[in-house]
Design a protein around this nucleic acid. Structure first.
Lengths: 340, 340
DNA sequence: TTGAAAGCGCTAACAG
DNA sequence: CTGTTAGCGCTTTCAA
């Protein structure tokens, strides 16, 4: 029933090889034959069977994106960038969203062997050495996005610097009792942000007080980067009473939302009583007036695709690492210069 | 280099047919042979070539989702639901995001003939009769999500009722000078919401004043459902001076954000001077205290997949329409009972 | 330049 | 229950 290359060939009065050549823009074709075939294609409304092409070409013209079960601005925006860039190439995008820990490797394994995708975008998750080796040995292109491994291409954002800048911002505003609320330390960004925080403190002659550092490890399954965790973490800080911090660097905006809620519930006000600075610059941040560190998410997505395509199409084997810088976005949550 | 079914067959000492049977869980296999093959598969780390399977089976085990170039809560959440449900089946998801008007049909056409997907989820866009006919004649399963056509399966949300309830809420709170800000009328939801608005007015003895109805057609390319449009639309309403409305039903939350901004800029306050009710219940709504109509987006995504799968797997040809109801979520933006 | 034919890796029908 | 074989629809030599 569906029209195949044979139908086209017959209609155009040529062999299937010829039809294939015009489909693939081979130069070894007369203008005349080409026109003839093209007409037959149009008349029959022919479209090559993708799977057959993939099989014969050993190439799928498709990339896969393995991404945490997303529900949030970051992934939505990243995907946006990915799609936008992908349009330049005629590639399709298969989305693999990962929920439980197990399936992350499950998808990697499949990607490696199903030969369904020509390359992989691996987003926001750590990749085990075992799979790094597999990718290296099979040569299947992969680029890590918002994740890092020394042996693979990666697009990251400089969390350490971001945290440093955020903390420094607080210091420069005159705050001295500065706390940090972080995600679970099993998360790389959480660790990097902690590093930046400490570094800023230290370079400005502050000493690190561990009462002022709270990790959001309230729940086993989550990574701590959520509203509820921020809420709980802030309560701990507030419980310090008189000793409570006057400024806090929160490792993500969404946590900061929870933080602000906790503050409000205790009848304190931001920034008068406590200054808050976040990280991410999600859409919400603007509306709640949250000062934060912006990550160029869209650009990350676009660059990731660009780079992956270089690997796929030009077989570029060079090592590629790009570390995007964050940008301080000043809004109202840190107030003006103080002397506390 | 990559391991094929032949390698497995040889290793297990069986024919490729047998291997194929165990891969496909055929019952016509001895436990023993099956075990043998399974072991060979494991040892060789074999994984079937998806394209070859698709070609031979005439089935891709993949569905496509044609969706507007998404950057927003609605699509992000919908995709979330889709993926969640899709996990139950072992299907992959190919994302086709549409930007310009043209490519919408482009993807439909491809989907129809590439035989790369077994079914289509068509989101938030109108489908032309021409393509409806094509789908009907080829029999390729399709379900419309947040869109409608009498001849195709569809998952919709009752915009008219939602608008009606929203408007009625305003009326019941005692407001009389009630306006509506709508998206462009080329959008179906925009038209339906307008209908609900008028109906509520009428049923409560109000007359429709066209000064109090503004369509967001400030820009050609967009559909009007955005912040900037809401901002501009509200300015028009505010320009009415003394005559300005005291309550406005805004056809989407994101527009409502712009509306609130415009109100704030003129030093009016919500809800004291002007009550606002939105539509969608995006994440932001909660934080800005926006009363709104919630759409069960996640459920829509899940149901869409469920239904599409029934069509694909069980070849269910019956007609399926589901119209989700919206739900009023009362927050602070409409204030308490008034008498204005 | 073009046609014929040999795969690509798998499924499914057909014998046995 | 299992092996063999003929496709699935296309690309790509290899001759002509």
């Amino acid at each position: 029933m569906p029209v195949t290359i044979y139908d086209v060939a017959k209609k155009a009065g040529v062999g299937i090889g010829t039809v294939s050549r015009v489909i693939n823009n081979s130069p070894r074709i007369t203008r005349k034959t080409k026109a003839k075939v093209l007409r037959a294609i149009r008349e029959l409304n022919y479209q090559p069977h993708t799977s057959a092409q993939s099989l014969a070409r050993r190439k799928a013209n498709t990339i896969g994106c393995i991404i945490p079960y997303f529900a949030g601005y970051f992934y939505s925006e990243l995907l946006h960038g990915i799609q936008r860039k992908l349009r330049e190439f005629e590639y399709a995008l298969i989305l693999y969203s990962v929920d439980i820990q197990q399936s992350k490797e499950f998808f990697l394994r499949r990607a490696l062997q199903e030969r369904r995708v020509d390359g992989i975008l691996f987003v926001s998750m750590e990749i085990s050495q075992r799979y790094v080796d597999k990718f290296l040995s099979t040569g299947l292109p992969i680029v890590l996005v918002n994740s890092f491994h020394s042996a693979l291409d990666s697009i990251t954002v400089d969390s350490t610097e971001g945290a440093y800048i955020a903390t420094k911002h607080l210091i420069e505003l005159g705050y001295t009792r500065i706390a940090m609320i972080d995600g679970q330390l099993k998360s790389i960004p959480a660790r990097l942000r902690f590093e930046g925080f400490k570094k800023a403190l230290q370079q400005h002659g502050f000493h690190f007080d561990k009462r002022y550092f709270v990790v959001c490890d309230f729940s086993e399954e989550a990574d701590g980067f959520n509203k509820e965790a921020g809420y709980l973490a802030m309560q701990k800080l507030l419980d310090l009473g008189e000793e409570m911090p006057r400024a806090v660097f929160v490792s993500s905006d969404i946590q900061a939302i929870g933080v602000m809620q906790a503050i409000k519930e205790r009848d304190f006000v931001v920034p008068d009583d406590i200054a808050i600075i976040g990280f991410d610059d999600i859409e919400l941040a603007q509306y709640v007036g949250l000062t934060t560190m912006r990550q160029p998410i869209l650009e990350m997505g676009e660059l990731a695709v660009k780079r992956l395509m270089e690997r796929i199409i030009r077989k570029d084997r060079s090592e590629f690492k790009h570390n995007f810088r964050t940008q301080l976005v000043v809004r109202e949550s840190c107030g003006a210069y103080k002397n506390k």
